[in-house]
């Protein structure tokens, strides 16, 4: 249980903002083990979202190396990177980000359909995953007919449908009330505990971060604290 699934080395990411260069992530080293639930905390502007984008291959670093599932992302073409995301990475976002024209079931099945899985099989698997998030009855509803919590559960189902090696969650509770937040976090935690799902979650909410085995606090683009929370008595 000590297999490194994602690793970044001296990763820096700079942005141009109005003529000056802003360093959002400043030389971070980090390794995530298979099965871990890592919570990344920090104030807004601390670089936590950028770190997640870099680790997941949504953005490329200005300097440094990102290794995901043994692939050095810098050496992959955009298509290869996209395929890696499609097959091995799941995403959950703050604003649910479901496609409004598709039903819940179709949204969940989307990554499978993109991988050219047969429509009937994709629907079957999507239905299964929807069941695990408790939304089997809402399968045929469009996103605008679902509550925020339900939409986020559909998003999680979509992220999980490919049995990804890694699940990235960017403020998954940022737009939810506290009870829905708890449901979502519990759902994530359950997938970690029961299926050994590796989860990397960015949040500014300490309550959400408390679900992680590791709470990493960023400050000014650097790791301020990396705290293991497991099996420590209070």
């Amino acid at each position: 249980m000590s297999e490194v699934i994602a690793q970044i080395e001296r990763v820096t990411r700079e942005f141009k903002r109005g003529g000056s260069v802003v360093r959002a992530v400043d030389g971070i080293d980090l390794a995530v083990q298979r099965g871990e639930f890592v919570a990344i905390m920090g104030k807004s502007g601390s670089g936590k979202s950028t770190l997640l984008h870099l680790m997941s291959g949504l953005q490329r670093p200005t300097r440094g190396r990102v290794v995901l599932l043994g692939h050095d992302l810098g050496s992959l073409s955009d298509d290869a990177l996209t395929l890696l995301r499609r097959q091995h990475v799941g995403f959950v976002f703050q604003f649910f980000n479901l496609l409004p024209t598709l039903s819940a079931l179709e949204n969940v099945a989307l990554p499978l359909l993109l991988s050219s899985v047969r429509a009937s099989e994709a629907a079957g698997r999507a239905r299964q995953v929807l069941e695990t998030v408790g939304l089997q009855e809402r399968a045929d509803h469009k996103p605008d007919e679902l509550s925020g919590g339900q939409m986020q559960r559909v998003a999680i189902a979509r992220a999980l449908v490919n049995r990804p090696a890694l699940l990235f969650a960017d403020e998954p509770t940022g737009n939810l009330d506290s009870v829905s937040s708890e449901e979502i976090l519990t759902l994530l935690k359950t997938t970690q505990v029961e299926q050994g799902q590796t989860i990397i979650m960015v949040t500014h909410d300490a309550k959400a971060a408390a679900y992680g085995d590791r709470v990493i606090t960023l400050r000014d683009g650097r790791v301020h604290e990396d705290l293991a929370t497991r099996s420590v008595a209070v």
Binding site: A206, A209, V215, L227, V232, V234
Partner: peptide, 9 residues
């Protein structure tokens, strides 16, 4: 506090 929250969770 972080550890305590983790434990409570």
């Amino acid at each position: 506090y972080h550890l305590q929250m983790a434990e409570l969770t």
